[in-house]
């Protein structure tokens, strides 16, 4: 399999070093604009590809990534069982922290953790922006 010296390599897909920088920038901007606490791009196996936060976020991200990918996969399987191709919105609301999931493409998920001062409406706008930018990297 081919890869650049400073790239990222997978058995199934590859991300160049340059693309990681772009992902970091997109997530950084996304966190700032949406006022989210943390955003991470993970793959469907639960690996963290890129992550940015507002500096005040102390969650166990590796466990969160493992659970988020499993949760997404479980919900996706439920959708198939009832004859849907997917359930588009995945969102868990807490008293002070909430989690939002969006599917980037067949390989990646964008997971956002945000506080009670962020509205779901604003977040969804900013997520849509970020997804467009992330997907543009692979076009």
């Amino acid at each position: 399999m081919d890869y650049d010296d400073d790239g990222i390599s997978f058995s199934e897909y590859t991300i160049e070093g340059e693309q990681i920088d772009m992902l970091d920038n997109i997530l950084d901007e996304y966190v700032a604009e949406s006022c989210a606490n943390s955003a991470m791009l993970i793959d469907m196996a639960g690996n963290i590809i890129a992550q940015q936060d507002n500096g005040a976020c102390e969650h166990d991200l590796y466990s969160l990534a493992a659970l988020a990918s499993a949760n997404f996969a479980a919900v996706d399987t439920m959708a198939k069982l009832v004859g849907e191709s997917e359930f588009s919105l995945l969102f868990h609301k807490g008293e002070s922290e909430s989690i939002h999931f969006s599917k980037v493409n067949s390989e990646f998920l964008l997971i956002t953790i945000f506080g009670k001062d962020v509205t779901l409406g604003l977040l969804r706008l900013k997520v849509a922006d970020a997804l467009t930018k992330i997907n543009a990297i692979w076009e």
Binding site: Y3, G7, S9, F10, S11, A45, N47
Partner: peptide
């Protein structure tokens, strides 16, 4: 599908 980050020199493998 281990994830190898050549930039941060980190490997995540699933067992």
């Amino acid at each position: 599908m281990a994830f190898v980050n050549m930039k941060s020199k980190e490997v995540q493998a699933k067992i």
